[in-house]
Amino acid sequence: MSFQITSEHIKLDSFLKAVNVVGSGGEAKLIIGEGHVRVNGAVELRRGRKLRPGDRVELDGHAFLVE
């Protein structure tokens, strides 16, 4: 699945909320902190990680492409 952003970047926690994977920023913080999220194939622990077009986010078997 792809998700188009309207700015130069989006933070990882905001992205997870935007694609409806989590219901709140607190939930995003927990999931990211526990190492469940991968960005471009690597585990990402920073909720403020800036995602840009071309980045791939994976969580629980779901993959999202940032456009």
Rank of each mutant, 00 (worst) to 15 (best):
I10Y: 00
I10Q: 00
K11R: 15
L12K: 01
L12E: 02
L12F: 01
L12R: 01
D13H: 09
D13C: 04
D13T: 00
S14F: 02
F15E: 01
F15H: 04
L16Q: 04
L16E: 06
L16A: 04
L16C: 04
L16G: 03
K17R: 13
K17Q: 09
K17H: 02
A18D: 04
A18H: 00
V19E: 02
V19G: 02
N20F: 08
V21C: 12
G23K: 14
S24T: 13
S24G: 05
S24D: 08
G25S: 06
G25E: 03
G25M: 07
G25Y: 03
G25H: 05
G26N: 11
G26K: 12
E27D: 12
E27F: 09
E27I: 10
E27A: 14
A28G: 09
K29A: 15
L30G: 14
I32L: 07
I32S: 07
G33P: 10
G33L: 08
E34W: 05
G35E: 06
G35N: 08
H36Q: 14
V37G: 10
V37D: 11
V37S: 11
V37W: 12
V37K: 09
V37Y: 10
R38F: 11
R38K: 15
V39W: 07
V39D: 07
N40H: 04
N40T: 02
N40P: 05
G41V: 11
G41Q: 15
A42D: 15
A42T: 15
V43A: 13
E44I: 06
E44Q: 15
E44L: 06
L45H: 11
L45Q: 07
L45N: 09
R46H: 03
R46V: 02
R46L: 07
R47Y: 06
R47E: 13
G48A: 11
G48Y: 02
G48I: 03
R49N: 04
K50L: 12
L51N: 01
R52L: 09
P53M: 05
P53Y: 03
P53G: 07
D55E: 01
D55M: 01
R56D: 08
R56Q: 14
R56F: 09
V57R: 01
V57P: 05
E58P: 04
L59I: 15
G61E: 06
G61A: 09
H62L: 12
H62F: 13
H62Q: 14
A63L: 13
A63K: 11
A63S: 14
F64Q: 00
F64E: 01
F64Y: 15
L65D: 10
L65T: 12
L65K: 10
L65E: 12
